[in-house]
C-alpha cells in the first residue's frame, strides 16, 4: 500500500515537473475552460444518466411520484434472471446479430474487392451501395414493409416467378426476424463496404505482386495475402456491426413492433417496452445495465485488439 502511494506521489511529481507553464497560443491556463462545453453535455446527459440507470435498477420505481419509489436491492436482477421474456429477448438479439454480422462482413468484403478493380461504373455502384445508409431508417423501412407485403409485395412476386412458395414475412413469427435482417443488411452494408475499401487501399500492394510473380491465382492471392492482412479491418467491422445490431431499434419499431408474438422483441426493444409501455422502470433499467455491460465489454475488446495491432505494425 505504502509503495503504491509513494509511487503515485512520485509519478505526480514527475507529471508536475514535465508540464511547465506555456505562454501565447500554448498557454495552458484555460485548457479546462475549452473542455467545459462538451464536458457539461456529457456529464449531464451521458455520465450522470449512466450512473442513474444503475440506481433506478435497484428500485421499484414509481413513475408518477419518484419519491414513493421503493428500494428493492437486487430484486429486479433476480426477476430478470427468472424471466423467460428477458432470456427470449437476449436470444432474439443474438439471432439478429448472427443474422446481420457475418453476412455483412462477407458480402461487404466481396463488394469492396470487386469495387477496387478499375471497372466502368465503379463510382456509380459505390454511390448506389452507400446511398441506403444515408437515407433515414423510418422512411426506408416503410419501403421494405411494402416490398415484404405477403399479398402485393415485390419480394413475394419474385418468389412466385421463381416457383417458390409465398412467405408471410413480417406477419409470421417464423419469418419476421429474417425480414428485419434483410432490411438491415440492405440499409447498413454500404458503410462497411467503404470501410473495407479504405482497408484495402491502405494495404501495400508489394506482397500481392510478389505472390503474383510466384504464380498465385487471384483467388489464392485473396485467401493467403489480402484476407489475412485485412484482418484488423475485419475485426473492427465485426465489433461495430455487432454493437450496432445490439442497439438497433427503429426498424423493429416500424416493421414489427416486436411482434408477431414477441418474435422480434430484442433486448433493446424490451427496454423500450418495459420502460415506456408497461412503466416497469426498475426492471427495464436492469435490462439496460446488462446491455451496457455487454456493449462495454465488446468496446474494450476492440480497443485492446487495436492497441496490440498498432504495436506490431
Amino acid at each position: 500500500m505504502v509503495t503504491i502511494l509513494s509511487r503515485y506521489m512520485e509519478r505526480r511529481a514527475r507529471i508536475n515537473e514535465s508540464i511547465p507553464r506555456f505562454h501565447g497560443i500554448r498557454n495552458n491556463r484555460y485548457a479546462l475552460v475549452y473542455l467545459l462545453p462538451m464536458a457539461a453535455v456529457f456529464l449531464v446527459f451521458t455520465i450522470i444518466p449512466t450512473l442513474f440507470v444503475g440506481v433506478i435498477s435497484l428500485f421499484h420505481w414509481n413513475v408518477l411520484s419518484p419519491a414513493l419509489s421503493q428500494f428493492v436491492g437486487l430484486k429486479n436482477y433476480q426477476d430478470l434472471l427468472q424471466s423467460p421474456v428477458f432470456w427470449h429477448s437476449l436470444l432474439i438479439s443474438l439471432l439478429f446479430v448472427l443474422g446481420t454480422v457475418p453476412t455483412t462482413v462477407f458480402i461487404a468484403v466481396a463488394i469492396a474487392v470487386l469495387l477496387m478493380d478499375n471497372l466502368p461504373l465503379r463510382g456509380l455502384v459505390r454511390t448506389g451501395v452507400f446511398s441506403p445508409y444515408i437515407t433515414p431508417v423510418v422512411a426506408t423501412s416503410i419501403i421494405w414493409i411494402w416490398m415484404l407485403n405477403p399479398q402485393f409485395g415485390l419480394i413475394n412476386s419474385l418468389l412466385h416467378a421463381a416457383h417458390l412458395p409465398a412467405v408471410q414475412w413480417l406477419e409470421s413469427p417464423h419469418w419476421a426476424l429474417l425480414g428485419v435482417i434483410l432490411f438491415t443488411l440492405w440499409h447498413n452494408m454500404g458503410f462497411d463496404v467503404i470501410i473495407f475499401m479504405a482497408g484495402l487501399t491502405s494495404l501495400s500492394s508489394e506482397l500481392g505482386e510478389a505472390a503474383k510473380v510466384d504464380g498465385a491465382s487471384s483467388a489464392q492471392r485473396f485467401v493467403y495475402v489480402t484476407w489475412p492482412l485485412l484482418s484488423p479491418t475485419t475485426f473492427f467491422v465485426t465489433i461495430i456491426t455487432t454493437i450496432g445490431s445490439l442497439q438497433a431499434f427503429t426498424q423493429f419499431f416500424t416493421m414489427t413492433q416486436g411482434g408477431p408474438l414477441g418474435a422480434t422483441t430484442t433486448a433493446s426493444y424490451l427496454v423500450y417496452e418495459m420502460g415506456f409501455l408497461f412503466f416497469h422502470e426498475g426492471f427495464a433499467s436492469a435490462i439496460a445495465v446488462v446491455m451496457f455491460l455487454i456493449i462495454a465489454l465488446l468496446t474494450i475488446v476492440q480497443w485492446k485488439m487495436s492497441e496490440r495491432r498498432v504495436h506490431y505494425q
Binding site: F45, T46, I48, P49, T50, F52, V53, I56, I243, L246, Q247, F249, S268, V271, Y272, G275, F276, E281, A284, S285, A288, V289, M291, F292, I295, A296
Partner: peptide, 9 residues
C-alpha cells in the same frame, strides 16, 4: 454507452 441505456434516466 448506448442510447438504449440512456433512454430511461
Amino acid at each position: 454507452i448506448p442510447l438504449t441505456v440512456l433512454l430511461i434516466p
